[in-house]
Amino acid sequence: MSPVEPPVTSPTDLAAAYAALADPVSAAGRARPIAGGTDLMVALTGELGAPPATVVDLWRLDSLRGITLDGDVLVLGALTTYTDIRRSTTCGEHLPALVQAAMTIGAAQIQNRGTLGGNIANASPAGDTLPVLLAADASFILGSVRGEREVPAEAFWTGYRQTALAPDELVLRIRIPLRSGREMRFRKVGTRRAQSISKVVLGLAWRDHGEMPDTTGPPGAWRDVRLALGSVAATPIRARATEAVLEGRFPTPETADLAATTLADELHPIDDVRSTAEYRRLVAARIVHRLIREAGGW
């Protein structure tokens, strides 16, 4: 069906954006912010749920752009596009897994418009950057007329396409603590090699004991393990049971077996149009097995 054309305002500063979102119409929960538009524009036909009644265009909020280092924290503005991330030497140096994730999203056209904040707020379980953000202990700065607050990524996605955002609240910035000795791996199994939506997407992070000046013990053991996955549940999730069995262990064949088995037990994906539940469960476990195998060099 042809798209609807709801009223839109294009504020140029945050205060105006907050005000537009706090408008009574927005209080009804129906005004929707648009960033790069790669999700919202598709909703205008009304075939995938009710189209927005009014729209607040965030594209002119230049204060939400930019990739910077704030001490040991990597800070990305919510309007940072995937192309920005791909081109950022700062991201490439400090969080290459995020660059890898950005590269797998859509193709040039989508990467030029789609934003990190949009990926977060859209809350698709298949959002490809989201496991990276979870595995990296990211937190999100949210803003509204009431001021700013910080919500950790792991508390942000509360249900299928549900978030901790109030109806009048925006994602402003993404803060990612940079930890010494952290290794991170990203893998996406998608439907094809570009313009692809994930069947399983995951980020695995750990700190090598030997690289950590503040701890003692044998080098090579994994600490602060984070395993985050997308497309295997209603939200992006952390696999905490698997993280627990990996914590403090060495990347040996036994560890890999244990982690894969634990993960397969821990996940409860579903069949859908893109894949089967069992494929997702099996592939997630096999990828983790592979990543541990590669880390262990066996």
Partner: peptide
């Protein structure tokens, strides 16, 4: 920059 004109308001 290349964009999909169907996704740009």
């Amino acid at each position: 920059a290349p964009v999909d004109a169907c996704l740009v308001p």
